[in-house]
Design a protein around this nucleic acid. Structure first.
Length: 454
RNA sequence: GUGAUUGUAGCUCAGUUGGUUAGAGCGCCGGAUUGUGGUUCCGGAGGUCGCGGGUUCGAGCCCCGUCUUUCACCCCA
C-alpha cells in the first residue's frame, strides 16, 4: 500500500500530553463543583438513533447532524426512482438510522424516559462527553468538542435555576476567569411576540433580536421585515428592545408592557423570584437580565442562561435553560428540567489566551531514576516501588543508555528530582539526589530521601 | 450551505518578472564531555514545494479542479 499522509478530519484535533494536562485540569475543576452541588454522573453512547436526534434542534440542527451510514448493502433498500431523484434529505432516512450526538441534553431526555422507573426524582445528573456538529470550523468552533452538562430534571422550582447560577459562579471563580452571566426567559420573549400580535413568529423574532449586540438595531429591524413581520409590529417592538436601567427597573417596565400577556407576566414573575433568591448570597460575578438573549435551541421554555468571558472574545463559554417538555416526545409527560452546558474547548481557549493555568501540575512525574545497568536497577527498583506506594509519581529510564540522554529526557519532561545511583552510590548504599531547578545535588540515605519527598 | 483566505523540512517562515542543485531560525541526531539536563562550540540527517490535471522549452511561482487552514455569514459551546 502506498504511504499516505496522516491527517484527521476537518474541525477535529489531537491533544498532546501538555495540552491534556491542561484539559484534565478543566474537566477536573468542573467535575469537582458538579459533585459538590449534588450531581451524579452518567454517560450515553456517542451515537444515537437518528429518530432520537432529528427535529430537536430546529431545521439548521438537522443539517448539522453527523449521520452514520447503515452497515452492509445500504443501497439495496433504495429504489432506482429515489436514487435518480438525488434528494439527499429524503434518501437519508433510508440509508442512515444512526447519528452522532449533537448535544448532551437530548440524549439525557431519552435516558430519563428510558430509565424512568429506576430514577429518583428530582434527578441531578452531570455528563462530560464529546459532541459532534457538522458546521464549518472557525474561531472557537469545532466539529468535535466536549460539553460538560449539569441538569436537574423532574422539578419545577426556580431554586434549581438559582443553584445553577451559583454553580456557574463557583466554577469560573475557580478558573479565575471574569464572566458575565446573562439571564432571560422564553416566556418573556413569547409574551413580547404575543402583544405585538406575532406569536407564531417567535423563533424568527428571537433569532433576530439575539443579534442586536452584533449587528445593531437597524439591521435587526431589517431582518424582521424580511422575515415577514408587519412594520406595525416592528414599531411596537422598539420600546421593548430599548428598555434601559438595571435588572429590577427593566422587569418593572416589562410588567407594564406585558400586562395583557399571561405568559409574559409569568416570565417576569419567574425572573423576579430568581432575583429575590440571588440577594441571599454573594456572587463573584455579575448577573444581568438581557432581553436580547434568545438561544437557538428551540426546546427551551423558561429561564435561559448564557455566560460570556469578559476578557476574551470567543462567544459563549456556557449556556443552558429550562425545558418543560423535552421528555414528552419520548412519551413521558409533565417532566420539567433545567440545565447548563459548559463548553470545555472554549474554556480551554480562554485559559490559554489568559495563560490562567495553575503552576502546580500534580499529574507530572516528580522523581526520575537514571539507569546505569542491571546491578543499579536491582538496587533502585525496590526504592522506586516504595516511592510510588507513598503516592509520589516516579519513573526509571528503561535502559542504561548515555547519561546525557537520560538527563535530557528528565529535563524535557520537567521532572523536578533526579536520582542518580551508579557504581559509587551502590557501594555506599546511598542516593545522589539532584534538584533539576537549582542544579544542586547531594548524597542522601534511602530513608532520608523517602522522608524528604513525602 | 454561501463568501473570502491559507498550504514550501518535525515547527515558524523566506524564496526576485516563471530560469541551473529550494533556503533560514528553532527542533532533532552525533561529537567536544566513556557519571550530569537547561547555556556554548563543531558536524549531520531531513523536502514527490498539500494532491491531481493544464499552460510553457522550463512551474514552488501562472490557470483549473480537489483537499486542508484560518476568518466572516447562516447557526452555535
Amino acid at each position: 500500500m502506498a504511504v499516505q499522509k496522516p491527517s484527521i478530519p476537518k474541525g477535529t484535533r489531537d491533544f498532546s500530553p501538555a495540552e491534556m494536562l491542561k484539559r484534565n485540569y478543566i474537566f477536573g475543576t468542573i467535575k469537582k463543583h458538579f459533585i459538590r452541588f449534588g450531581y451524579q454522573p452518567i454517560e450515553t453512547p456517542a451515537m444515537e438513533n437518528l429518530s432520537t436526534l432529528m427535529g430537536k434542534y430546529g431545521e439548521e440542527g438537522d443539517k448539522l447532524l453527523f449521520k452514520i451510514l447503515n452497515s452492509g448493502d445500504f443501497l439495496s433498500k433504495v429504489s432506482d426512482a429515489e436514487l435518480n431523484e438525488k434528494n439527499s434529505p429524503k434518501i437519508t432516512t433510508s440509508i442512515s438510522e444512526k447519528g452522532l450526538r449533537y448535544d448532551l441534553t437530548v440524549p439525557f431526555a431519552r435516558f430519563v424516559v428510558q430509565h424512568q422507573n429506576e430514577i429518583n426524582f428530582p434527578f441531578k445528573r452531570y455528563q462530560i462527553q464529546p459532541v459532534w456538529r457538522a458546521d464549518r470550523p472557525q474561531k472557537g468552533r469545532y466539529r468535535e468538542f466536549f460539553q460538560c452538562d449539569a441538569d436537574v430534571i423532574g422539578n419545577n422550582a426556580l431554586l434549581n435555576e438559582v443553584e445553577l447560577v451559583q454553580l456557574i459562579d463557583a466554577i469560573f471563580s475557580d478558573f479565575d476567569v471574569q464572566i458575565v452571566m446573562k439571564l432571560n426567559n422564553r416566556k418573556i420573549l413569547s409574551g413580547i411576540a404575543e402583544i405585538i400580535g406575532q406569536a407564531d413568529k417567535i423563533i424568527d423574532i428571537t433569532v433576530a433580536i439575539d443579534k442586536l449586540d452584533k449587528i445593531g438595531l437597524e439591521n435587526v429591524n431589517k431582518e424582521l421585515l424580511e422575515k415577514g413581520l408587519p412594520q406595525k409590529a416592528i414599531d411596537q417592538l422598539q420600546p421593548i428592545l430599548l428598555l434601559s436601567g438595571n435588572t429590577a427597573e427593566k422587569l418593572a417596565s416589562l410588567k407594564n408592557v406585558l400586562a395583557s400577556s399571561e405568559i409574559g407576566l409569568k416570565g417576569v414573575d419567574e425572573m423576579l423570584e430568581i432575583i429575590q433568591y440571588l440577594r441571599l448570597f454573594e456572587l463573584k460575578n455579575e448577573v444581568e437580565l438581557d432581553l436580547t438573549l434568545a438561544r437557538g435551541l428551540n426546546y427551551y421554555t423558561g429561564t435561559i442562561f448564557e455566560v460570556k468571558a469578559k476578557d476574551v472574545q470567543i462567544g459563549s463559554v456556557c449556556g443552558g435553560g429550562r425545558y418543560d417538555d423535552l421528555t414528552g416526545i419520548f412519551g413521558l409527560k409533565d417532566v420539567s428540567g433545567v440545565g447548563i452546558s459548559f463548553g470545555a474547548d472554549r474554556i480551554f481557549d480562554v485559559l490559554n489566551e489568559l495563560n490562567a493555568y495553575p503552576k502546580q501540575q500534580t499529574e507530572n512525574t516528580k522523581v526520575f531514576f537514571v539507569n546505569f545497568g542491571k546491578a543499579e536497577e536491582a538496587f533502585c527498583l525496590p526504592i522506586l516501588a516504595q516511592i510510588r506506594k507513598l503516592g509520589v509519581n516516579a519513573e526509571i529510564y528503561p535502559e542504561a543508555t548515555k547519561m546525557k540522554k537520560q538527563m535530557k529526557y528528565a529535563d524535557d519532561k520537567k521532572i523536578p528530582i533526579v536520582v542518580i545511583v551508579g557504581e559509587e552510590e551502590l557501594k555506599k548504599s546511598v542516593l545522589t539526589v539532584k534538584n533539576m531547578e537549582s542544579g544542586e545535588q547531594k548524597e542522601l540515605a534511602i530513608a532520608d530521601f523517602l522522608h524528604s519527598i513525602q
